[in-house]
Each structure stands twice: as C-alpha cells, then as structure tokens.
C-alpha cells in the first residue's frame, strides 16, 4: 500500500534520513522505532508531504504522491501527533469535525460521526462543546485520535501519539485504541521510541539508527534473529520481558507437552495469549496448570513444560 523507495532528507547541516526503503501492506501496523533523532518523525512526515524528500519516491496505492495535490493527499491520510495539535479555538466537536468539514459532509453526517467517535474513544457527551484546554491530557489525546479517524481515511500516521501521557493513562488510552475496529482495519504507520509500545502495537517493526534502517521485521524476528549487534543490544535491557510478550502459546504449540495426567486445578487460557500472560495466570490464579486449545486439540500445560517449550522455541529460531 505504501512504498518508500530510497527516500532521503537532508537538512542544511545533516542528513536526517539517508536513502531508506520500506513498504507497508494494507491493514498492517508498521512501527518506526529508534533512538531520539534517528529520523523517525522526518520519515513519517514525508509520507503526507509535510516534509518533501530530497531524494527518492513514495508511492501510495501505486501512485507517486509527488504528483498529487498535497492538500488532497493529506485529507485522505489521518494524522495524530504527540502534543495533539488540537485547535485551541475549536470545541471538541469542531476539532473532531475538521476533516469531514473540509470534505463538505452534511451537518447531520458530521454530527453523527462525531458522536460515534466520542463514544468509541470513551469521551463523555458533555465535552461536546468544551474547549481542549479544559480537558485532561488523556482526554485531549483521545480527541486527537478521534480527529485523525474522523474522515475514515485508509491510512493513519501517528507520531508518538501516547508519548506525552503518564504511564497509567498511556496504557489506558493505548488499550482503548487497540480495541477499536479501526485499529485492526487501517494501515497504520506509528512512530515511537518506546520499545514496549512498539511490541504491543506492531505487526512489523522498522528499527532505525542515524537516518538508516537497521532491520525491518516481525517483533520476534528482531528479537531472535537480530541483523547485527546494534539490534541485539537495542533490546537487551528488556529482552526477557519482550521475549515472553512476543511469543504466544500458539507459536510454542509443537514444543508443548500435554501434562493431562496432572491431578490438580487448571485454568483455561486462549492460545493467542503470550507467555508473559500465561506466567501471570500461574501467579495470579495460583493454579498448577493451564488448559489451551488449538485446532480441536486440548493441552494441559504445567509451569515446567511451558518454560521448557519456550527454551526449545528460542533454540529453534
């Protein structure tokens, strides 16, 4: 859906983005990850021509965006950013309605859409006519997300949309966002420097350093098949937790023994849950075993067999 070919951006003194290429598939959540100043934002902004590349081409739906009218292009791409960028002189409803208004939707249609989004993003109706500065940071961020989603664009660009929030609010807003049907349907390019967030939201991660892409791939690929030492050390600090979180019971299935003979309490767990969640299950429910199903087969899993399967999986990858 999005194809970036050899794009570069040079500012006066330095090269912010250095001849990178990547493509994002339809419906995919593509996360740009990297340390501060590595060129993530610049890359993102080139996708809706807020920044024009010095070199290279970007195609969206096979069309070179350079040949499109910048304003038309931007209206068809949702955009959410860290400091929300809400219009202080517009009410919550007016902020959300900005792009539909540019598309000249009817009043009724706009109103219906705004109300729908406010419900989806858990914004109480009473905020309809309030101004952004009367809202909390988390609420402002929800309005920002609603605005990005309002015109139902197929593509959503997000620059650290949860970055300015405190950890608890961040998790909450992020989870609400993750549960939206839009999150699943849309092609999303998201910028973050928060590794946990990247792993939680990404179908694929694009790890950048000094304007170049170091590795692009599924979270597990980056963890278990790092392209070089940079990738390896990048995740070292949180490696264990990331590994537990990125490997699901489904992925371990072939290595899991069925401990059906254990005579004790057992808790049901969905097969698409990850190891981290399975471990939480053991400690929270004080059970000795978990019961999981895949393709009609049921396995009863003890703590020992889970850890054993996990280690085997790591070796195999």
């Amino acid at each position: 859906m999005i194809d970036a070919k050899n794009i570069s951006k040079k500012f006066k003194q330095q090269t912010a983005v250095d001849a990178i290429s990547f493509s994002v598939n339809e419906g995919e959540n593509f996360v740009l990850l990297g340390t501060s100043g590595c060129g993530k934002t610049t890359t993102l902004k080139m996708l809706n021509r807020l920044i024009e590349p010095t070199d290279g081409e970007i195609f969206i739906n096979q069309k070179n965006i350079r040949n499109e009218n910048a304003e038309t292009l931007r209206r068809s791409i949702g955009y959410a950013l860290q400091n929300t960028g809400l219009f202080p002189h517009y009410t919550v409803a007016e902020n959300i309605a900005v792009v539909p208004k540019l598309f000249k939707w009817s009043k009724e249609k706009i109103r219906a859409r705004v109300e729908e989004l406010m419900i989806k993003l858990h914004l109480s109706k009473e905020y309809y006519d309030t101004y952004p500065n009367e809202l909390s940071g988390g609420q402002q961020q929800r309005v920002g997300l609603a605005r990005a989603l309002a015109a139902d664009a197929g593509i959503l660009l997000m620059d650290e949309p949860f970055g300015a929030l405190d950890p608890i609010t961040r998790t909450r807003v992020r989870n609400d966002f993750k549960n939206l049907e839009e999150f699943k349907k849309k092609t999303i390019v998201l910028v973050t420097h928060d590794v946990q967030e990247a792993f939680e939201l990404a179908d694929r991660i694009c790890l950048m350093d000094k304007g170049k892409i170091v590795q692009t791939g599924k979270p597990t690929e980056l963890l278990f098949k790092p392209a070089n030492d940079f990738v390896k050390t990048f995740f070292d600090e949180q490696r264990l937790q990331l590994e537990y979180k990125s490997v699901t019971i489904k992925m371990l299935w072939q290595f899991l023994n069925d401990n059906g003979n254990i005579e004790s309490s057992a808790t049901e767990i969905a097969a698409d849950r990850n190891v981290w969640q399975a471990l939480e299950c053991f400690s929270l429910n004080e059970t000795d075993a978990l019961i999981a199903h895949k393709n009609g087969i049921t396995k009863k899993i003890s703590y020992a067999s889970l850890m054993n399967a996990f280690n085997q999986y790591k070796k195999a990858n």
Binding site: L50, E71, L81, F87, P88, H89, R147
Partner: peptide, 26 residues
Amino acid sequence: DATVLEAASAMGFSKWQILTKVELPL
C-alpha cells in the same frame, strides 16, 4: 503554536485556510 499549525496542514488545510481559520483567530 507550531504544533497547531503542523496539525492544520496535516489535516489538509490550504495556506489560506491556515491563515484565516487558525493563525488570524489565534
């Protein structure tokens, strides 16, 4: 605020719209 301006142009406002709907009112 530069962020507000960036948001405005990212939403697809034209230069004229940014001037009349964002910059001048603010």
